[in-house]
Amino acid sequence: MHRKLARLAVILVVFSMVLGMAGSVVRAQDKIKVGLSFSDFATERWKNEEILMRKLLEDKGYEVLSQEANHDVKLQNDQIDNMVSQGVAALIIVAEDGDAVSTAVNSAADAGVLVLAYDRLIKSPNIAAYLSFNNVEVGRQQALGVLTALDIDGGEWTADNPVKLVKLGGSPTDNNAILFRKGQDEVLQPYVDSGVIEVVADQWVDNWDAVNALKIMENILTAQGNEIDAVVASNDGTALGALQALKAQELAGVVPISGQDATADGCNSIVKGELTVSILKDIRNLSPLAVDLIDQLLKGEDIPDLQEYTMAELTNDDTQEGSVMAYFLPVVQVNADNVYDLVVASGFQSYDDVYRDIPEDERPPRPALPTAEATEAAS
Results as ranks from 00 to 15, higher is better:
residue 5 L to P: 08
residue 12 L to C: 15
residue 17 M to P: 04
residue 20 G to W: 08
residue 24 S to K: 11
residue 26 V to R: 15
residue 29 Q to D: 05
residue 31 K to H: 05
residue 37 S to F: 00
residue 45 R to E: 00
residue 47 K to C: 04
residue 52 L to G: 01
residue 67 Q to E: 13
residue 71 H to L: 06
residue 71 H to K: 11
residue 83 M to F: 09
residue 89 A to M: 09
residue 97 D to K: 03
residue 98 G to H: 07
residue 107 S to M: 11
residue 116 L to I: 07
residue 120 R to C: 03
residue 129 A to L: 10
residue 144 L to P: 01
residue 146 V to C: 05
residue 147 L to Q: 03
residue 156 E to A: 14
residue 159 A to G: 12
residue 164 K to N: 12
residue 165 L to V: 07
residue 191 Y to G: 01
residue 195 G to Y: 03
residue 196 V to W: 01
residue 198 E to S: 13
residue 199 V to G: 03
residue 203 Q to C: 02
residue 210 A to D: 06
residue 214 L to T: 06
residue 219 N to M: 08
residue 222 T to V: 14
residue 227 E to G: 11
residue 232 V to F: 07
residue 236 D to Q: 09
residue 236 D to T: 04
residue 236 D to H: 08
residue 240 L to V: 07
residue 242 A to Y: 02
residue 242 A to K: 04
residue 247 K to T: 00
residue 248 A to G: 06
residue 248 A to T: 08
residue 253 G to R: 05
residue 261 D to S: 07
residue 262 A to E: 02
residue 268 N to T: 04
residue 275 L to C: 08
residue 277 V to H: 05
residue 280 L to P: 01
residue 282 D to C: 12
residue 284 R to Q: 13
residue 296 Q to P: 00
residue 300 G to I: 08
residue 308 E to N: 13
residue 323 S to V: 07
residue 327 Y to C: 07
residue 330 P to M: 12
residue 336 A to R: 13
residue 348 F to A: 06
residue 350 S to A: 15
residue 352 D to M: 10
residue 354 V to R: 09
residue 355 Y to T: 04
residue 356 R to W: 09
residue 359 P to S: 05
residue 360 E to M: 13
residue 364 P to M: 13
residue 369 L to R: 09
residue 370 P to K: 13
